[in-house]
C-alpha cells in the first residue's frame, strides 16, 4: 500500500495516494474541474490552464494547475473560489476570442457566463485549434509515431506535419482526431479512403477479404504487423470474420 495524504478540497477532507494530482483526486471524488488539454492516457501538460485551482499551503495561497499539482499532506484546495472563477472566465474569454465560432469553446464559455469576447471584434479569430498539443502528445506517447509536432512558437505555434506538408510518418490511426477536444481535426472515411485533412494525408482502408467491410487503414495495419512481426497477409481478414 502506498503512502497516503489527507487534503481538503472545497471544505471537505479527502484521503489520497501520494503522487496523484489534485485533478485526479478531485475527479475521483466527483468534483468537476474543467479541462481541455487533459487525457488520462497522456502525460499532463498544463497548457489550457482551465483546471486552475487555488491552493493554500501554510501561509501561502496561489493559483496552480490541478492537472500537474501533486497532492500534499494538509493541502487546502479550492476549486471554485472567486479568484479561480475570475481566472477561468478570462481564460475562456481569451479562448473565445481565438475560437469565436467553435461550438465546444462557445458552450464552455457560456457555462461561465462568457458569451462574447471582451476584445474588439476586429480581433476575433475563427480558429478551432487551441494548441493544447493533445494530438501531438497522443501521436508520440500513445501511438509512438510522432508524425506531427508543434511547430513555431508564440502566437504562430500550431500542430502541424513536418515542413507543413504531408505527414509522411502518419499511419492514419485517428488518435489525434479522437483526442482533439475542440474537433479541430477533420477526418473522414469515405469510399474506402480515410482522409485527415489537417495533416494532408489520405489512406486506403483495408477491405476484409471475407466480408468486404473496410475496417482499418492499411498503413496502420502494416505498422502493427511490422512491429509485432506478424506474417504478411495477417490482416487480410477482419477480426469479425476471423
Amino acid at each position: 500500500m502506498s503512502e497516503t495524504v489527507t487534503l481538503t478540497i472545497d471544505g471537505k477532507k479527502y484521503t489520497a495516494e501520494r503522487g496523484r494530482t489534485v485533478l485526479q483526486v478531485a475527479t475521483d471524488n466527483g468534483i468537476r474541474i474543467p479541462t481541455l488539454c487533459h487525457n488520462e492516457a497522456i502525460e499532463p501538460y498544463g497548457a489550457c490552464r482551465l483546471c486552475v485551482v487555488e491552493v493554500t499551503r501554510g501561509s501561502r495561497t496561489r493559483i496552480v494547475t490541478s492537472c500537474l499539482y501533486p497532492v500534499e499532506e494538509g493541502l487546502i484546495v479550492q476549486t471554485a473560489s472567486d479568484r479561480v472563477i475570475r481566472n477561468r472566465k478570462m481564460l475562456l474569454d481569451l479562448l473565445l476570442a481565438r475560437c469565436s465560432e467553435n461550438e465546444v469553446i462557445k458552450n464552455l464559455a457560456a457555462e461561465y457566463g462568457v458569451t462574447q469576447p471582451s476584445f474588439r471584434q476586429e480581433y476575433w479569430e475563427k480558429n478551432d485549434c487551441i494548441v493544447c498539443g493533445l494530438c501531438v502528445r497522443a501521436c508520440e506517447q500513445v501511438v509512438g509515431v510522432s508524425a506531427i509536432s508543434l511547430v513555431n512558437r508564440g502566437i504562430s505555434k500550431e500542430p502541424a506535419p513536418p515542413f507543413l506538408e504531408k505527414a509522411t510518418d502518419c499511419i492514419g490511426c485517428g488518435s489525434c482526431y479522437y483526442v482533439c477536444p475542440t474537433h479541430a481535426i477533420k477526418m473522414e472515411d469515405k469510399n474506402g479512403v480515410r482522409r485527415i485533412h489537417n495533416w494532408k494525408v489520405e489512406f486506403k482502408l483495408k477491405k476484409c477479404s471475407k466480408c468486404g467491410i473496410y475496417w482499418a487503414p492499411e498503413a496502420q495495419l502494416e505498422y502493427i504487423r511490422r512491429k509485432a512481426d506478424l506474417p504478411v497477409g495477417f490482416f487480410d481478414i477482419c477480426p469479425n470474420c476471423r
Binding site: 510522432s146 509536432s149 508543434l150 510518418d169
Partner: peptide
C-alpha cells in the same frame, strides 16, 4: 528522431 521533432 522523427522528422516532425526536428522540424519542431
Amino acid at each position: 528522431i522523427p522528422q516532425s521533432q526536428i522540424y519542431s
